[in-house]
Each structure stands twice: as structure tokens, then as C-alpha cells.
């Protein structure tokens, strides 16, 4: 564990808590993409299959349980409890255009052609594009609530911090995982234009409003 990875995990944790607070306080899921949350649930389920078979640390297990629990709770809030406020017309990204290529790529490019390894690789590739339905929805509605902007900033920062973690681990431990790094770079790049909007607007107290 190193400071970059710890900050990354805390940023990820903060993003999920911000999202839950937004939904619970406003009792609304307006502006939130249910499809992205379904993709995140798929990512966590595929990546944490070893939750019960390999114990790494209390921290690791607690975070995995928290991430899986909260993402499914989020889906429950979007599609059941606050269903009336879910904006399905704008949440229209075709996720099959993500899942099929990512699934195929995981079969072709992986560290080891073994079931668990391919599923882990699938979760890494899927996570890098899982935010697309959410960003697509914001571009369609043309705006994002400030709290949703904070959620996306924390979520984007988490993988950017993981990139720093991988740089540190490369020099400190000689650890290097090309698949995780390439997917992490793609994932972080997808947030770049949002980061620009966030820093130039939200930091100055304005709302994000994209040219629709």
C-alpha cells in the first residue's frame, strides 16, 4: 500500500458516498445514469469474485464489500425506490456497444488464458469505459448538478491517483501491469474534458452546462 493508492481508494470511496448522499438527501436520481451504475456493478462483481476465496487484508475485504454493497444499493435506488425521478430518456447509451468489444478484447489480450484472469481483465477494460453512459447523459441534458460534478471529479481522480500508484510501484517495487495501466490511462483521459470544465467552472461556483 502507498499514499497514492490510499488516496485513490479514499477518492473512490468519497465518490460513492457523495452519490449516495445526493440520492438520499434530494430523494432523486435526476441526472444519474443507471446504465453506468450497472456497468460499475458488473465491474465490481467480476473483479471481486475472489472476495471469499483469497484474503488479502481487512482493509481490502472491507472496501470490496462496501463497493459491491453500495453499487447494488445505488441501482436499487435508481430503478426501484426513486424510479420516478430516473431520466431514462436521456440515459440512452447503448451499453452493448461497450460490453461486446470489451468482452472480446478480454479474451484476446490478457496475462493468462484462464477463466479468473479473463474475468479480471474484462473488469479492468469495462471499468475504463463504464463512465461513458454517464458522460453521454450529461452531454445530452447539457448540464450536471453541482453534487454530480463532485461525484464525477472524485471518481475520475481515483483512477488518476492509481496511475501515480503504478508509477510509484514500478520504481519502488518493480511492479508493472500493462493491462491495468493502459486501461487506467484510457479511463482517466475520458474524464479530461470534464476535469477541465470542473476546474474552470465548478471551482468558481458555477454550474457545469455543456453546449447541448
Amino acid at each position: 500500500m502507498n499514499i497514492f493508492r490510499l488516496c485513490g481508494d479514499m477518492s473512490h470511496l468519497a465518490a460513492i458516498i457523495i452519490l449516495l448522499l445526493k440520492m438520499w438527501k434530494t430523494r432523486s436520481v435526476a441526472g444519474i445514469s443507471g446504465k453506468s451504475q450497472i456497468l460499475f456493478a458488473t465491474v465490481f462483481t467480476a473483479r471481486y469474485l475472489d472476495l471469499f476465496t483469497s484474503f488479502i487484508s481487512i482493509y481490502n475485504t472491507c472496501m470490496k464489500v462496501f463497493f459491491i454493497g453500495t453499487v447494488y444499493f445505488t441501482i436499487y435506488l435508481i430503478y426501484m425506490k426513486f424510479k420516478a425521478t430516473y431520466d431514462s430518456n436521456h440515459d440512452s447509451f447503448r451499453v452493448e456497444f461497450l460490453i461486446v468489444p470489451v468482452g472480446g478484447l478480454a479474451f484476446l489480450v490478457n496475462h493468462e488464458f484462464a477463466p479468473l484472469e479473463i474475468i479480471w481483465t474484462f473488469s479492468i477494460y469495462l471499468e475504463s469505459v463504464a463512465i461513458l453512459p454517464q458522460l453521454f447523459m450529461i452531454s445530452k441534458t447539457g448540464e450536471a448538478e453541482t453534487i454530480t460534478s463532485h461525484y464525477l471529479f472524485a471518481l475520475g481522480s481515483y483512477r488518476a491517483l492509481y496511475l501515480c500508484n503504478w508509477i510509484y510501484r514500478y520504481y519502488a517495487e518493480g511492479f508493472f501491469d500493462l493491462i491495468a495501466v493502459v486501461a487506467g490511462v484510457v479511463q482517466t483521459i475520458l474524464y479530461c474534458d470534464f476535469f477541465y470544465l470542473y476546474i474552470t467552472k465548478v471551482m468558481k461556483g458555477k454550474k457545469i452546462s455543456l453546449p447541448a
Binding site: 488479502i56 481490502n60 472496501m63 463497493f67 496475462h111 493468462e112 479480471w120 511492479f175
Partner: peptide, 10 residues
Amino acid sequence: VELDDLKDEL
């Protein structure tokens, strides 16, 4: 480096 401790990250 063994494969499984590659997966010590979240």
C-alpha cells in the same frame, strides 16, 4: 512476481 499478489489492488 506471483500472479495472485498482482491482485492485491481494489
